[in-house]
Design a protein around this nucleic acid. Structure first.
Length: 431
RNA sequence: GCCGGGAUGGCUGAACUUGGUUAAAGCGCACGCCUCGAGAGCGUGUUUCCGAAAGGAUUCGCAGGUUCAAAUCCUGCUCCCAGCGCCA
């Protein structure tokens, strides 16, 4: 983790405003001011340490010369150096404490906010900016996906609960093939747009993860893999989104400017504790501990971030349209936006049985927020380095797409037609 | 899991046995000189941090330790290579 406090100084006003508009103020009093204060003390102290070290180095050099010439060394100097070292040590301890506090504050800081983001406290104040696809008036009564799965034996929740616990499932039969078809379709679609397909590791080391996620995420979302400590290995966590290992791929890296933008489409399972979601979508496969997804990730130059942000949103829209699912695009308000985002769009698919739009994708412009934490830079021809911008957006979340397809494409007799775009991957056109 | 070898700057690669000015040398890259231009040649620069600069600090996989002084000695860890064992 690298933290760059000049950035905080330069963006003081924007950051303070951001904290206020996101309603994060209660967490700490004047975090930005405190951070700047810490920064100044750390710098001053570092300068003092540097000059003490210089003194030490000068004396030490004298020893070096003396030993080469076979002369005796001065015991008084030896004592002096020892005193210097004590001074350095105590100052370093102090600097360590201040740095720890500064790092935690820095990690906590949200991103700034892009122009035009609607103000609001929570998701009720998000703004719908687009509706697409027709919600058809049915002559028959809509069956929920759960009913269809039950009737056609496509999901087994009961045995899953006994074997793995609640919020787990067995997918069965044609639903499995449909799930794999969604992945294959989504990967092929994105690859055709110049995104490099990627299957990432499904576990991440703790120290890497702490650059990406807040402690709250660790406790509420992440599963820790236990048992490895005994062998002396580092702790690992199961990924909670495909995005994390994809972004971390370039941590501590410098990407040559000519390679940007770097575009990837990943596919993997994701594991979430869903702590704090008790009661929400309790049954079924809408909110589960383990799901599959495809994910778009782009590393680009800052000036391209806005444009590519819209691009990844449009990529996903294109896929939902081809799957024939009615959806809408929502402009997320300040209070509901991820702290990493300067701007966030969500796609929500229409779920007939609930007569509601439900979230099926999130599209984040995180500018250099992640890059600063994971130290991802790019360099131009003359070697100047700057932080890249990163963008991430869902491709297709498989389980939720299954739900949307079952509910949207059901027929009166209870069968479900497979969207045209998926047929070459399923090999059948009807469930 | 066992045994062995290894990790040095943008890259190649020495110094480690025996701790001591500036991490050698080469390549690449940037800038300058030279040139009508290019090449060659010559010179300067090329980890990171503080600093307007001068300068200082820092850096040899990571973290500690010993020492006036660590790339070098000691301990722990991570990763890579090869062999053996196990294995989808």
């Amino acid at each position: 983790m690298v933290y760059d406090l000049n950035y905080v100084k330069d963006n003081k006003d924007a950051l303070e405003l951001s904290i206020k508009r996101r309603f994060l103020g209660g967490t700490a009093t004047d975090p930005v001011g405190r951070l700047i204060e810490l920064n100044d003390s750390i710098k001053t102290m570092q300068r003092e340490i540097d000059s003490l070290r210089h003194e030490r180095n000068v004396i030490s050099e004298g020893f070096s010369k003396a030993s080469k010439e076979g002369k005796k060394t001065d015991d008084g100097d030896r004592k002096k150096v020892r005193n210097l070292m004590e001074g350095i040590k105590s100052k370093e301890d102090e600097i360590g404490k201040l740095t720890e506090e500064a790092k935690n504050l820095f990690l906590w800081l949200p991103n700034t906010i892009a122009e035009g983001v609607p103000d609001g406290k929570d998701d009720s104040e998000n703004v719908e900016i687009k509706k697409a696809g027709d919600i058809t008036d049915r002559k028959f009564k809509t069956k929920s996906y759960a009913e269809i799965c039950e009737k056609k034996d496509l999901v087994d929740l009961e045995n899953a609960a006994r074997v793995a616990g609640s919020r787990f499932y067995y997918l069965k039969g044609k639903l499995v093939q449909l799930a794999l078809a969604i992945e294959a379709y989504s990967i092929a679609k994105m690859a055709s747009k110049g995104f490099t397909p990627l299957i990432p590791p499904f576990m991440i080391k703790k120290d890497v993860y702490s650059g990406i996620a807040h402690m709250a995420t660790f406790e509420d979302a992440l599963y820790k893999v236990s048992g490895v400590e005994d062998t002396g290995e580092e702790e690992r966590f199961l990924i909670s989104t495909t995005e994390h290992p994809m972004i971390a791929m370039y941590s501590d890296s410098v990407i040559p400017e000519g390679k940007l933008p770097l575009k990837f489409v990943g596919v993997s399972p994701a594991f979430r504790k869903e702590a704090g979601a008790h009661g929400k979508d309790q049954k079924g496969i809408f909110r589960v501990h383990q799901f599959n997804q495809t994910e778009q990730i782009v590393f680009c130059k800052p000036e391209d971030a806005d444009r590519i942000h819209k691009e990844i949103l449009e990529n996903a829209e294109e896929m939902w349209a081809e799957l024939g699912i009615p959806y809408r695009v929502v402009d997320i308000c300040t209070g509901d936006m991820g702290v990493r985002d300067v701007k966030q769009y969500d796609i929500e698919a229409y779920i007939y049985s609930q007569e509601k739009y439900r979230e099926v994708g999130s599209f984040d412009n995180t500018t250099d927020w992640i890059a600063r934490r994971l130290n991802i830079k790019y360099s131009d021809d003359s070697g100047n380095k700057a932080y890249v911008s990163t963008l991430d957006g869902t491709g297709i979340p498989v389980q939720r797409a299954l739900i949307a397809i079952l509910e949207t494409h059901q027929q009166e007799n209870g069968d479900v037609t497979v969207p045209e775009a998926l047929r070459k991957y399923t090999g059948f056109d009807r469930i």
